[in-house]
């Protein structure tokens, strides 16, 4: 669907995107991760045809950039990083303008689409407001409506959930997952759990280079020894707990995190080869009269990979 080869972008002498190649298949949801200034926005801007690459090629369906620029633009719905919109227009007028430019000529069709979008993005209360008076999150919603106006085959969203309230974030993730079944979606985000929950595939960019590009499941698996068990216990002595747990296996590495005023002890238990010891731990504790207040497995896979791959070399 989308084929990117040796994509490079220089700003004067500064190389913001360095030789990126990737293929994105139809129906895939690709999450673009990376620290600030990594080159995510620059990459997305080249995909949408806003920036011309310094070198490299972009092919979308059978269309080649920059010859079929207009055709490509009509295939893509794009939400820019900070949803910059026309401040002095009313939301409705803005959507009308966008719909016309995107070629929805029929008045009825436009109106129907507005109704759907206003449901989808929660715009009904703000249709008659000037864009300048909207809050950041509301602007973001208008931007999303803009991106989805023509129900495009490809959606490119630059930090779509930034500035939204938790309800709206959940909603956007739902939208992404739902429409992602048929459409191709590329979005950038700083929220790792979001990428983990919604993406089929994750690409991590650092200093303009792709440092990881794999399916979400694979990435997590390769992260190795990065999950741990969080255990909180009431009515026990620290040493007793450590002794008991170390008795289960030598592979366990137990660290105490805290003890609060109600004498609840919190531990993090890691295992050197990632075996799941939860049942053994539970059975052991059941023999005592301690109370388990918290007992869960947590995975830091993505976060760990992200940290490792994007750490500044000193």
């Amino acid at each position: 669907m989308i084929e990117v080869q040796n994509l490079t972008k220089y700003y004067k002498d500064f190389c913001a995107v360095d030789n990126i190649s990737m293929t994105i298949r139809k129906g895939e949801i690709l999450g673009l991760l990376g620290p600030n200034g990594a080159g995510k926005t620059t990459t997305l801007r080249m995909l949408t045809g806003y920036f011309r690459p310094s070198s490299g090629s972009i092919t979308i369906k059978d269309y080649v950039m920059p010859e079929d620029n207009l055709k490509i633009k009509s295939l893509i719905g794009y939400l820019p990083e900070s949803a910059p919109l026309y401040h002095n227009m009313l939301v409705y007028d803005y959507l009308e303008y966008v719909a016309k430019l995107k070629g929805i000529d029929d008045k009825e069709a436009r109106y129907d689409r507005f109704l759907q979008l206003s449901d989808l993005c929660g715009l009904s209360a703000i249709m008659a407001k000037p864009i300048a008076d909207l809050s950041k999150g509301l602007k973001q919603r208008v931007g999303l409506a803009h991106a989805m106006m023509t129900d495009p085959e490809i959606l490119i969203l630059d930090e779509p959930t930034s500035g939204l309230d938790p309800n709206q974030i959940a909603e956007i993730r739902n939208i992404i997952k739902t429409i992602g079944k048929e459409k191709t979606i590329i979005f950038s985000t700083h929220i790792l759990s979001e990428a983990e929950a919604t993406c089929d595939r994750i690409a991590i960019i650092n200093n303009g280079r792709v440092v990881a590009d794999d399916t979400t499941a694979n990435l997590k698996q390769n992260a190795g020894r990065s999950s741990f068990i969080r255990l909180a216990i009431q009515g026990a002595q620290k040493n007793d707990v450590v002794d008991l747990l170390s008795g289960i296996s030598e592979k366990l590495d137990i660290s105490q995190v805290s003890e609060n005023e109600k004498h609840i002890l919190s531990f993090e238990i890691r295992c050197s080869d990632n075996t799941d010891f939860r049942s053994q731990i539970y059975l052991k504790i059941k023999e005592t009269d301690w109370i388990i207040v918290e007992f869960q497995k947590e995975s830091q896979a993505l976060e760990k990979i992200f940290r490792e791959l994007t750490r500044e070399e000193k």
Binding site: G49, K73, P80
Partner: peptide
């Protein structure tokens, strides 16, 4: 300056 130029240029207009 406002940034709407990006919005405009990424729509299918020449």
């Amino acid at each position: 300056n406002v940034g709407s130029y990006e919005t405009l240029l990424t729509m299918p207009v020449s």
